[in-house]
């Protein structure tokens, strides 16, 4: 049982990093494909499309920071806390990355022919980023209370 608890603890430490990376991979791939498609049709503004497609890359950074804040000696007493905070923060980052990628793809699709809505079309992606920041910040706050 003790070994199993230790495994959960280590899982909780590394999950934000791993799932944050997966979130960024999927999100950037979705938005990146949209930017490539838009470049075929649009006459200019290619740099903006590529820039938007990199938006979901922040989630791997959040994951790395949470991982370092959780990183400590894993004991049977703190393993459950590390697992709970780490895994739930990781799942939140994963969803944020995938859906931000989709929001960016839609923004690219909409703004390729209507550049004047470019800024506004990024609002949903920015809101999703905000939720990711919530998960990130409160994971850091809570992790300070784990012994």
């Amino acid at each position: 049982m003790t070994e199993f608890m230790l495994v959960l603890g280590w899982l909780g430490i590394f999950a934000p990093m791993a799932l944050g990376a997966i979130a960024s991979i999927i999100g950037c791939a979705i938005a990146g494909q949209a930017s490539i498609g838009a470049m075929v049709e649009a006459d200019g503004g290619y740099g903006r499309f590529v820039g938007i497609s990199a938006f979901p890359s922040t989630f791997v950074i959040y994951g790395i920071v949470i991982m370092f804040s959780l990183n400590r000696e894993v004991t049977p007493e703190n393993a459950a806390g590390l697992f709970g905070v780490g895994v739930l923060a990781a799942v939140a980052l994963l969803y944020c990355g995938i859906w931000q990628g989709r929001a960016c793809a839609t923004a690219i699709n909409a703004s390729k022919e209507k550049p004047e809505i470019f800024g506004l079309s990024l609002a949903p992606a920015a809101i999703i980023e905000g939720f990711g920041v919530f998960a990130f910040v409160f994971a850091l706050v809570i992790s300070a209370g784990i012994s």
Binding site: I30, Q33, A34, G37, E41, I108, K112, E113
Partner: peptide, 20 residues
């Protein structure tokens, strides 16, 4: 990636249908 994202590059490479 799920099927809902199957043709992102294809769809974004098409002009908006309303423009037709």
């Amino acid at each position: 990636m799920s099927d809902r994202d199957a043709y992102i590059a294809l769809v974004t490479s098409l002009p908006r249908p309303e423009r037709l």
